[in-house]
Amino acid sequence: MRARPRRRGPLPGFGLSIGVTLAYLGLMVMIPLSTLVLGSTRLGLAEFWSAVSAPRALASYRLSIGAALLAALVNLGMGLLVAWVLERYRFPGRRLIDGLVDLPFALPTAVAGIALTTIYSSGGVIGRFLEPAGIKVAYTPLGVVVALTFVGLPFVVRTVQPVLRDLPAELEEAAASLGASRLQIVRRVLIPELLPAALTGFVLAFARGLGEYGSVIFIAGNMPMRSEITPLLIMIKLEQYDTGGATAIALVFLLASFAMLFALNRLAARREAHAVGA
């Protein structure tokens, strides 16, 4: 495996597989996406700009980005903790819980949405206790964060777990034999080792949260300027017969996700190259 295949490599099937891939991507992904670009060019620059920079649109970006960021941060911290607990400790039910972590990938978002709303609205299992304490979750921006936390929960756990599993025990032992305390080991040795994987999970969770719709609309209050996420604004623009505005906002949103994903893939590629070189 040391010699990376030069140019394309000797395996057959390049033409066929890339042909199928490009044809399918072209038909299913590129043509539909190009209509989005074309649709927004019909608008004219001034109109395009006023659609994507309207205060209501700006407020929705703020909420979508802010809530996705916050949820991804929660998942970064809790994901590290969960991965740690699942990999390092033994307790009854560990395997079951490990399996359950992927639930948000498998559960339809609309189902997640109505379940979370039922739990956090004022009569719900948790809402009942939070309400008297003055904390409102359902129908507030906080509700958006809760839904996005659910949706993005598996990412960090699943990116960190394999790294943690493959971490050589010598690393910690060496640090310990040099007299480092447990806390120092965690801070100086473990966290730096886990951070790249955790960040990958963080970005994935963030990207997923940005676009999420199904689970959020049930639990967000959907108030303009306050609890209206960008995908909902796109929907509402459409329903107001403003296809141009919807297209423009959708395009901006799409470019942002694409840039983020591309950067992430480059980062992963660089790390892969690093690993091979080492």
């Binding site: 507030t140 108030m223 329903e239």
Partner: peptide, 15 residues
């Protein structure tokens, strides 16, 4: 005084 704006009348009634 409005905390939630649903997109349809039915959703508001459910709320």
């Amino acid at each position: 005084n409005v905390p939630i704006l649903d997109t349809g009348a039915r959703a508001s009634t459910v709320t």
